[in-house]
Simulated assay, not measured.
Amino acid sequence: MGCQIISIPLLILFFTVLIITEKAESKALESPQYTIVHSESDFEVRFYRETVWMTAPVNEISFEKATKIGFHRLFQYIEGANLNSSRVSMTTPVLTSIVPGAGPLHSSAYFVKLYLPVKFQASPPLPLPELNLQPDSWTSHCIAVRKFSGFARDNNIVKEAEKLAVSLSRSRWANSTSTQSGYAYSIAQYNSPFKFVGRVNEVWVDVGGSEGDDCKSSLVAAY
């Protein structure tokens, strides 16, 4: 019976990512700062200040494939595939924003994103052109968030997004979903693919409100 041969470069990449992500799991990673302004049993609303992310656009039907493809390009970027040859620290979460029906046959377009550390927020290293990455500057805004465990898969992300939509429809945030971002929803993943227990994921949906109005009217906690 024949054995399947795995290429040496692929093995090297696999173990490099494994080592880096295991080290990353052992220490706190930098994340975008937010303030919780509304909290219920199954969702919360956060206020995020201005931030800059590096974004990989991906045309793909599968959320899982798109996330892997986009993250692979982003991983090359943070490992030094930029015009400064700068190493950029890994951050969390890996965010995949979804635009349903954007492609042929009603397939989806995806934007896989990594938050840039504070050190690079003002002047992100320019990615190598072949990576097809671009910085994404966020203005201050509110995001409704639903947590879920396990792995984020093609067969569960839509269900989780629908649960968040139902929760919002029953709250004072009904009819406040923002369309300014152009994304239907995003999936935030906080763990490496090599962690199997205690995984944390979130569905993100932009909602109306800014620091001066509803978004900060019922402050619960700050992070």
Rank of each mutant, 00 (worst) to 15 (best):
V112C: 03
K113D: 08
L114M: 15
Y115F: 13
L116T: 14
K119N: 12
K119Q: 15
F120M: 14
Q121E: 11
S123M: 05
S123P: 00
S123C: 04
P124V: 15
P125H: 05
L126K: 14
L126E: 15
P127V: 14
P127C: 08
P127L: 07
P129C: 02
P129Q: 08
E130F: 07
E130N: 09
E130L: 07
N132H: 06
P135K: 08
P135T: 15
P135G: 10
D136C: 03
D136F: 09
W138S: 04
T139P: 00
T139L: 01
T139I: 07
S140N: 05
S140C: 03
H141S: 05
C142T: 15
C142N: 10
C142D: 07
A144E: 13
A144H: 12
V145F: 02
V145C: 08
R146P: 01
R146I: 10
S149Y: 06
S149P: 02
G150L: 08
F151M: 10
A152S: 12
A152D: 08
R153A: 11
D154T: 11
D154W: 03
N155C: 01
N156Q: 11
V158K: 01
E160I: 00
A161K: 01
E162H: 05
A165S: 11
S167K: 12
S167R: 13
S167A: 15
S167I: 14
L168C: 03
S169I: 13
S169W: 06
R170N: 06
S171L: 06
R172Q: 09
R172F: 03
R172S: 07
S176Y: 00
T177M: 05
T177Q: 08
T179P: 00
S181W: 02
S181F: 00
G182Y: 10
G182P: 05
G182A: 08
G182H: 10
Y183V: 15
S186G: 06
S186M: 05
A188P: 01
A188H: 03
A188R: 03
A188L: 04
